[in-house]
Design a protein around this nucleic acid. Sequence first.
DNA 1: TCGAATTCCGACCGGTATTGTCTTATTTTA
DNA 2: TAAAATAAGACAATACCGGTCGGAATTCGA
Lengths: 152, 152
Amino acid sequence: MLRFSKKADYALIAMKHLALRGDQAASAREIAEQYGIPVELMAKVLQRLARRDLLVSHQGTRGGYKLSRSPRLMSVADVIQAIDGPVTVTACSTQDDQCEQYATCNVRDPLWRIKERILTALGTCTIAELASDAPEPVHPPGTQSATWHPSA
Amino acid sequence: MLRFSKKADYALIAMKHLALRGDQAASAREIAEQYGIPVELMAKVLQRLARRDLLVSHQGTRGGYKLSRSPRLMSVADVIQAIDGPVTVTACSTQDDQCEQYATCNVRDPLWRIKERILTALGTCTIAELASDAPEPVHPPGTQSATWHPSA
DNA sequence: TCGAATTCCGACCGGTATTGTCTTATTTTA
DNA sequence: TAAAATAAGACAATACCGGTCGGAATTCGA
């Protein structure tokens, strides 16, 4: 399978929506209703994105969420990781693991390399690209990634 | 998360083991015990790999499994898909889906593109590469994939 | 010819993670 | 002050996955 979680899907939908909204804030309810997503769940997703500094929240009657920075400086990888935690292809992908087969595993290193490649695939797709729904001009592989934004 | 299933991990471990074995067959029990994997589960994994024509099985007392073709002609993607079915990043990745948000989803196409990139990442890593545990010389992206083997 | 080793196949169970709901508190604006 | 919104945590429902079990069918060797 190798699926994203539904929360991650919802997060990407919301991020694209907010990117298209420009500087105008949108509430959880508004987004949720537009895409047929349970309101409370959407709210939670947005909260987590805000805590991870991908969104800026504003409480109160006319409140809502806005992107914290230009969508060109945020990648799909950023969103996924904000919601689901670090991308780990196998249990052993993180160093401090309790994988049963750690000692005898014979494919750990190659899979770790694959994980890296997946990560750069996710990292080179920006939210801006999501919003425009057009592939960016092809980077020379590994040259530039929106995941590595110089300053927060 | 974005994890492989454990069955897929076991499958890759077994494939590498068999690749290193060369032409000598290995039984499910033998592999399972060597890597600390439950025997019945390992057996199931191998059965599925055999049914998908990645392995050749031989029943009976001195039976076991062998690779069906050169490990250079099988990719990690082949193994993953044999075990877990087609790689689908989202529910909507397959055309005939019952995703709730299908009608209103705004990120379907870009995510489909990401799926393609992940698939080529998995497709360009061969079982032979797993076995040697050395990265192949970098392909020009998309040029050649072990997934597209000309003849069975 | 018999028995042991092995692949094959389906059903089933249990735990865990994920999804989704509910409730309450807090903040802000009109 | 009331309404609208975020913030946060508890909790139920459910789906999925890892693992187990039992019973065939097949093959080899003694």
